[in-house]
Computed example of a mutant assay.
Amino acid sequence: MGRGRAKAKQTKVARQLKYSAPNTDFDSLQRELSNGEGQSYTTDTWSDDDSRNSEDEWHRA
């Protein structure tokens, strides 16, 4: 019991998020995206294949 007020609050917040129009600065977004041209992307050092091998060794131990 007592969940009615919490559920009503969640419903209110969800409705506000669904129907509100956020103020997006498209000019700023355009500048940020255009500055990224020509930059090279590096791979994540944590996602290489060696990490899977060490996990296998850990499970065998």
Results as ranks from 00 to 15, higher is better:
S20R: 13
D27F: 06
F26A: 06
N35T: 00
Y41M: 03
D56V: 10
Y19P: 08
K18Y: 06
R60H: 11
T24V: 15
T45H: 02
R52I: 06
R52S: 10
K18R: 12
N35G: 03
E32K: 05
L29H: 00
L33W: 02
L33Y: 09
Q10E: 11
D27Y: 12
A14N: 09
D25C: 05
A21S: 14
Y41F: 03
S51T: 13
W58A: 11
R31A: 04
R60A: 12
R52C: 01
W46D: 14
K9P: 00
A8E: 15
Y19E: 12
L33T: 05
E32C: 01
Y41K: 03
T11I: 15
E57L: 13
D25P: 00
D56Q: 06
E32A: 02
D48M: 08
Y19S: 14
D48H: 06
R15I: 08
R31P: 03
Q16R: 08
T11K: 14
E37T: 02
N53C: 03
D49W: 10
H59N: 08
S34E: 04
D48R: 08
D48N: 08
K12A: 14
D50H: 10
R15D: 11
D44L: 04
F26Y: 14
H59L: 13
Q16L: 13
D49Q: 07
K7V: 13
D56P: 02
T45A: 05
K18H: 10
L29D: 08
S40L: 00
L33N: 05
T43R: 01
Q16T: 12
F26T: 14
D25I: 04
D44W: 04
D44Y: 03
D50W: 06
Q39G: 05
Q39H: 02
A8K: 15
A8D: 15
D44F: 02
Q39T: 05
